[in-house]
Structure formats: structure tokens, C-alpha cells
Amino acid sequence: MSRSDVLVSADWAQEHLGDAGLVFVEVDEDTSAYDKGHLEGAVKLDWKTDLQDPLRRDFVDKEQFEQLLSAKGISNDDTVVLYGGNNNWFAAYAYWYFKLYGHDAVKLVDGGRKKWELDSRPLSDAEVTRPATQYTAKEPDTSIRAFRDEVVAAIDTKNLVDVRSPDEFAGKLVAPAHLPQEGAQRPGHIPSAVNVPWSKAANEDGTFKSDEELAALYADAGLDDGKATIAYCRIGERSSHTWFVLHELLGHADVKNYDGSWTEYGSLVGVPIAKGA
């Protein structure tokens, strides 16, 4: 696995729009972004209504994922090219789902929607429909998903990477600063976690930093190459961005995303919490 297998440039994406066997997929929290204009031919996934179970706190199961991709017209043989807003947070989150359900041919557009817009590249408001397919997913690959008990067991044992902003890590904020500061959880972080904000892995235009810069970033933060790693944030989307960097770009073998993240951990009874920088 190398960078070119998992990441494509905006130039490449623009040249390959409409190619047979490629499906461009925009993933946003804010579906109005897609509706204002999207890459020509791209379909939309809503991270909340399409990717989350409507009742339980969990994401879509294998059957729901199969139904979703079938309805969107994505087949097992397609290469899925993901992009989105928020510096690709939610596109990286969807990327992780595709890998979890065994879809190997999936890539991210470097810089996502932001770089595309800052470059003033063309957007389309034409409605996109694709004929339905019969998509078959594999059983979920839990080697890339961490659950709460293994996170508690990982304290002082595995690498724990908290990718939230320094103020969230310190316990000063309980949510990213574009959201109201509310919620029942206790502020702080998991003991022994290092704070490497996701944003340090990205340039201002949303593109990923070079492999050399990324390797130095996590080495300087004290990540032990010989240990397994669990990344977390508040709800698991920013940590998908870091999971992508560590597992897909840098090729670390054992990296899990803890999608329960702080909203789960910070609400657990009796677990240890650390505060401060």
C-alpha cells in the first residue's frame, strides 16, 4: 500500500470524472453543500442518515451497508473515490467504513471539497442517478475498529492518539469550536494518550502533508512504532482522518479507530480520566 494507491490529486479527479468503473462519492455532514454543487456525476452520502443506524448508537450493519450501496448504484467492481467537506473528515470516515466492509478499491481526493473550491474547479448541480446494483459486503473487519473495553485495557500499554484540538484534550472545550459547548460527558482525555491534533496532518488547503512530514509528526509525539495504536476524537470522524494517515499513508500495521470516542469514554462510569495539556 502506498500513497498513490489510496490518495488522488484534485487534478487527477478532474481528469477522470465520468470514467467507467469509477464512482465519485461526496460525504458531508451538511447535505446542502452537495446540493449547491458537486463533482460532475458524484453521488451523495449523508454521514448521519445514511451511515448511522437510526435507532441504536452504532453505524450501519452489513445488510444496511449493502442496501445503501446498492441503492446508490455502487457495485463491488467499482473503484470508489471519496471527497467531502471539513478537510475530508467525513470522507475519511466513509473510507474507513468501506475498508471495514471489505471494499478494497477506495481512494480519497486530496484536499476534498475545500481544495476543489479554493482552486475554483467546476461544480455541477445536475441531479445524479445511477442504476441500482446488488452490492455484497464482507463481514466487518474489526481489526481496524476499537471498542471501549480494549481502549481501557490499552491505557499505558498501546499508543493512544487523541486527535482533538489541544483545548478539547486539556478539558477546556468539550466539543469542536464550531459547535455549542454542551454535552453530558466529563471533559479531558484518556490517561497516557498523546495529543496529535488531526489538523497537524493536513495543510491549510485540506491536503495531507508529505509522508516525511507525517512520519516526523508522530515520531516527535512519541508514538512507539513497535506498539499497536488506537486513535480517537469526539465521535470518530476526525480520528478516521488520522487512522487514514497512520494505516493507509504511513503503513503502520495495527491501527484501530475508536469510533465511540470521547462521547462514549467521557460518559463511562468509573474509568480514569486525565486533564490538562
Partner: peptide
């Protein structure tokens, strides 16, 4: 410390809003 905390996209009227400390 110049560290990124959040990012939003402005509305049609050019507006932005953050919830900070």
C-alpha cells in the same frame, strides 16, 4: 498557540460563528 481549533464555511451573507472559551 496558533493551533487549529475549528473551521466553518461562511453563509450566503458571509457570516461565520464559533463556540469557543
Amino acid at each position: 498557540t496558533d493551533e487549529f481549533t475549528a473551521e466553518v464555511v461562511t453563509s450566503p451573507e458571509g457570516e461565520f460563528r464559533f463556540f469557543a472559551a
